[in-house]
Simulated assay, not measured.
Amino acid sequence: MHHHGYLWTGPKQRFDDEALRRPPHPDPPPADGKPELIQRHREVKAEFPVVDLPPLETAYWLIKPEKLVRGTWEEPKEAAQWLGERLAEYAPRFASESDRDSTRLALLVNSAAEQLGWGGDVSHGFYLERPSFLSVALVTCSPNRAMPDLACPTTGHLTRGSAQR
């Protein structure tokens, strides 16, 4: 078991495009259905796996391109440390003063280490200044507890303790 880190920042309006943040329905609309529904299903089916937007269900990060992985760790504490570093980096930009509280952020990091330790995923989101949004996630891989059939995005090569900003 190992853990992958993901980070996304961008306009809140783009984050709110939920159609691209959820997988397409497994059954396409009927062939004689409304053309706009058929077209939208095709678009979502093509775009969901490759778009950089955070998925609504954290485990679906695993089907996204490998280039979106910001770090990979075997140890939950190392992955949680990366989370803590990202939270500290972005905290000055958090729109809510209570989100900037260092005690609260430390609790999030400690909780993340615990969740990852039993195979859970971690996902947090914060409003930033200028209606932007930060999404940061840690996803357990090989297997993922919520979706064990999802393949690891790093095609089997684990880089110990590696991380990008």
Results as ranks from 00 to 15, higher is better:
8 W>F: 15
153 P>K: 11
120 G>M: 03
94 F>W: 07
73 W>N: 03
84 G>Q: 02
4 H>S: 03
59 A>I: 09
85 E>K: 09
131 P>R: 15
95 A>I: 02
124 H>K: 12
65 P>F: 07
108 L>I: 09
60 Y>G: 03
101 D>S: 10
86 R>D: 01
52 D>G: 13
152 C>A: 15
91 A>E: 00
32 D>L: 08
2 H>T: 11
138 L>F: 12
125 G>R: 08
63 I>E: 10
153 P>L: 10
156 G>R: 07
108 L>T: 05
103 T>L: 10
34 K>S: 14
84 G>R: 00
64 K>R: 15
151 A>P: 05
56 L>G: 12
45 K>T: 02
17 D>P: 02
74 E>Y: 08
52 D>N: 15
86 R>W: 01
48 F>T: 05
48 F>D: 04
134 L>M: 08
144 N>G: 06
112 A>V: 01
47 E>K: 15
142 S>T: 06
60 Y>V: 04
21 R>M: 09
66 E>R: 15
144 N>A: 12
39 Q>D: 04
112 A>T: 00
51 V>W: 09
91 A>R: 04
39 Q>Y: 07
86 R>N: 01
44 V>L: 07
16 D>W: 13
90 Y>S: 06
123 S>E: 08
118 W>H: 08
17 D>T: 12
85 E>P: 04
151 A>G: 14
82 W>G: 01
79 A>K: 01
133 F>N: 14
42 R>E: 15
126 F>R: 13
125 G>D: 12
129 E>R: 11
30 P>E: 06
107 L>Y: 06
24 P>I: 04
22 R>A: 08
145 R>M: 12
94 F>K: 00
129 E>S: 13
77 K>P: 02
41 H>G: 01
72 T>Y: 05
140 T>S: 07
63 I>P: 13
91 A>N: 00
74 E>I: 02
121 D>N: 15
100 R>Q: 14
7 L>H: 04
148 P>E: 11
50 V>E: 06
6 Y>P: 06
116 L>I: 00
114 E>M: 04
127 Y>H: 14
65 P>R: 05
150 L>M: 08
44 V>T: 06
142 S>W: 12
64 K>P: 05
138 L>R: 06
146 A>L: 11
101 D>N: 10
68 L>M: 14
89 E>I: 02
48 F>S: 01
151 A>D: 10
159 T>Q: 12
79 A>T: 04
27 D>F: 02
55 P>D: 06
29 P>D: 12
45 K>W: 00
108 L>Y: 13
20 L>M: 09
56 L>V: 10
112 A>Q: 00
103 T>P: 00
1 M>A: 13
85 E>A: 08
96 S>M: 12
160 R>E: 08
